[in-house]
């Protein structure tokens, strides 16, 4: 608990900045719902007929959704689906790589605490940070729409945020495991962010190519389906289990490898 409290305290400014920026952006998007939606609707719909199904769904143009839901999914669900994983990546890189690079790892590891406790407290802290960002994002969507007197599938948006959160936790955990091998913080962040952005575009490319879900299985972004979450108020069980499995497996690797890690000067 002491280590968790210290971690949350250390990251409070970052969380505040990210939350405020995220909320502001989402509030602006949600509060602009009618204006933008009426202006772009015709163009989007015209193009969407030639789009692959996967891309239609990703951009909020899947059939059977209300215009508001489509808009929210397109503007927040798809476009902002990168922000939470990027935040998760920055948090993950800060756990081992930054502490080793800056030398504060020596301070912690000289104390009578197990390395696994350090790693687990950081992982829980990362999840709490991501949960706070996901929940405030959902709140911003609801507030933004309500401010304009609009209504949408609020319960569905909540599940979209849960899907966001699970995706970010999985990506954060994978990066946490990867970061145990990286001792240089600045290059570590660049590498991990490049991988995350790369995975995002690989998934997008596969969706455009209309490849089946099974072919995209190992990419965490493939288990993010805001259209499904909004329409059904839930997530496919397979996606939930896969993201949870990716998170747990990565965490186990991270703990084991950190336990064995040689902390050089």
């Amino acid at each position: 608990m002491i280590l968790l409290a210290q971690y949350l305290k250390a990251n409070r400014i970052g969380l505040l900045v990210w939350t405020l920026a995220h909320m502001t952006l989402i509030l602006m998007v949600a509060a602009s719902a009618t204006a933008i939606e009426t202006q772009t609707d015709y163009l989007f719909r015209a193009f969407s007929e030639w789009m692959p199904r996967g891309l239609q769904s990703f951009l909020g143009l899947a059939p059977g959704m209300s215009k508001i839901d489509s808009y929210i999914q397109a503007k927040t669900g798809a476009l902002l689906s990168l922000t939470l994983p990027i935040y998760a990546t920055l948090l993950a890189a800060g756990v081992v790589t930054r502490e080793v690079d800056s030398g504060t790892a020596d301070f912690l590891l000289a104390l009578p605490t197990r390395r696994r406790d350090i790693m687990l407290s950081r992982w829980v802290g990362m999840c709490l940070n991501l949960a706070a960002l996901a929940v405030t994002s959902w709140g911003a969507v609801v507030l933004g729409l309500k401010a304009k007197g609009l209504t949408g599938s609020f319960y569905g948006y909540f599940w979209m945020c849960i899907n966001w959160f699970l995706l970010a936790v999985a990506i954060g955990s994978i990066n946490l495991a990867a970061s145990v091998w990286i001792d240089d913080y600045s290059s570590g962040v660049r590498i991990l962010l490049a991988v995350v952005v790369g995975l995002f575009f690989v998934d997008l490319g596969m969706r455009i190519a209309d490849l089946p879900y099974a072919a995209r299985f190992f990419n965490p972004f493939s288990h993010y389906d805001p259209a499904y979450a909004i329409k059904n108020g839930g997530m496919p069980a397979g996606s939930v289990l896969t993201l949870l499995f990716m998170s747990a497996a990565s965490l186990i690797v991270a703990v084991k490898k950190f336990d064995e890690k040689q902390i050089e000067t």
């Binding site: 002491i2 280590l3 210290q6 250390a10 800056s102 030398g103 504060t104 020596d106 301070f107 000289a110 104390l111 009578p112 605490t113 000067t265």
Partner: peptide
Amino acid sequence: LPGEPVMYDWLTGRGNISLAMEVR
């Protein structure tokens, strides 16, 4: 005492020592 001691920059000296003492 490490050769090149590094502590948490954003904490005071007392804050760093308190953290270590709490863990202990």
